[in-house]
Amino acid sequence: MNLIGKSAKKTVAILAAGAFILTGAGAFAAQTSPVLNDKPGQYQHKAKSRHEISPEKAAQRIAEISGASQETILKYNQQGHSFRDLSKAAFFAKVSGKSLDDVLALKTADNSWKDVRESLNISTDQIKAAAQEIAATRLSARLNLSKENIQALFREGYRQRDIAMAGILAKHTGKPVQDILSMKKINNSWQSVAASLGVDKEAFKQDVKAFRLYPDSNK
Rank of each mutant, 00 (worst) to 15 (best):
N2Q: 02
I4H: 13
K6I: 04
K6Q: 08
T11P: 07
A13G: 03
Q31S: 08
Q31L: 12
D38F: 08
Q42C: 01
Q42R: 02
Q42T: 00
K46F: 09
S49A: 11
R50G: 03
E52K: 08
E56G: 08
A68K: 14
A68C: 12
E71P: 14
E71I: 07
L74R: 10
Y76G: 04
N77A: 12
A89N: 07
F91L: 15
K94C: 02
D101F: 09
D102P: 14
A105L: 09
K107F: 10
S119E: 10
N121L: 14
N121S: 15
Q126V: 00
K128A: 05
K128E: 05
A130H: 01
A131M: 08
E133R: 14
E133C: 12
I134D: 09
A135D: 09
R138P: 03
L139G: 06
S146T: 02
N149E: 07
N149F: 04
F154Y: 15
I163A: 12
G167Y: 10
G167L: 09
G167T: 07
I168N: 11
L169I: 07
L169K: 13
A170W: 03
I180V: 11
S182R: 15
M183T: 04
N187G: 10
D200C: 13
P215G: 04
S217A: 13
N218K: 11
